[in-house]
Design a binder for these strands. Structure first.
Length: 283
DNA sequence: TTTAAAACCCGCCAGT
DNA sequence: GTACTGGCGGGTTTTA
């Protein structure tokens, strides 16, 4: 199957400078309501009102039935247009406090890479714009094509975890960031059954404290982290080995092949066989 | 595929 | 009062 799958146009009121580049729009803002999908990129002057003509054009596009997505601080434009009122949304974690003050009616989730609320989508900091665009491709054309696009761009088909793992932790003192040793320990025996109780015992903490520290330091719960590590290792084995799916499942610590299938389906939306066919180097 | 048991997660709260 | 710990309940997810 070959493209083009989308017809891309850059729309804006005038040429804009983005760092050292000058972006020359193909169309004015009056073209926006004719689009199927409108993507609003990061907005520089977030503490000022976005231009009224831009806000109006985005609102008009939405009313005309367009799907509207924002990248990074582009969420401020969507919010100013009222499109996010009462909806879940996200933006760059660094500006989440300001965003909350300016748009209290938006249900802001600063912990995710992107939010898909049907016809309105918002994404977090710069690189998560790639995640949301891949997500849109996946929605429109399926996982297999999305994965091929990801592969072509040399990015992961789907990143796990939220923004929290990228936020600087105020006090990650090596001696006190003490789930790190337990994470190494767990990775070394990922193929064995590992329970939260085992991990907490290794760290010398109660279940509750271990889970809480882990969340603070990693941005994921222990259980999710373990599954994510197992899936990552399984993906590697699917790409690089000829082992059977059941064998790989056992190898990375899933009790059954069914379990691996289910988690792979949940994280990247494909079966192990499909994944292998897409990513295994030709032999 | 379905299902019951086990494990996990997280808000809540009392104790230090 | 504040910061942290850790047990509990029960809703959710995962396993077998």
């Amino acid at each position: 199957v070959t493209g083009p799958w989308y017809d891309l146009a850059l729309c804006g009121p005038k040429a804009v400078r983005a760092g050292r580049f000058l972006l020359e729009p193909d169309h004015g803002l009056d073209e926006l309501p004719r689009a199927d999908t409108v993507i609003v990129p990061g907005w520089a002057d977030i503490d000022q009102e976005p231009p009224a003509d831009l806000v109006d054009a985005v609102r008009a596009a939405h009313e005309a039935g367009a799907r509207v997505a924002s990248l990074c601080t582009g969420a401020f434009v969507l919010a100013a247009a009222g499109l996010l009122d009462g909806r879940r949304a996200t933006t760059h974690w660094h500006v989440s406090d300001l965003f909350r003050r300016m748009f209290p009616r938006v249900e802001l989730d600063p912990d995710v890479l992107f939010v898909d609320d049907g016809e309105i989508l918002t994404s977090a900091g710069a690189a998560s714009g790639i995640d949301i665009c891949l997500h849109i491709v996946r929605r429109d054309h399926g996982s297999e094509l999305a994965n091929r696009v990801a592969r072509r761009c040399v990015v992961p088909p789907l990143r796990e975890g939220g923004q929290a793992q990228y936020i600087e932790q105020p006090v990650p003192e090596p001696s006190t960031a003490s789930t790190a040793a337990t994470r190494d320990w767990a990775l070394a025996r990922l193929g064995d059954p590992l329970t939260l109780t085992d991990l907490a015992a290794h760290a010398g903490m109660s279940l509750r404290t271990f889970a809480r520290r882990f969340n603070d330091e990693v941005g994921l719960s222990p259980g999710r982290w373990i599954v994510q590590q197992r899936v990552a290792r399984a993906r590697h084995l699917l790409e690089a080995s000829d082992l059977s799916v059941d064998r790989i499942a056992g190898e990375v610590g899933f009790a059954t092949g069914a379990s691996l299938r289910q988690h792979l389906q949940a994280t990247i939306g494909v079966s192990p066989q499909t994944y292998r066919r897409t990513f295994q180097t030709t032999r």
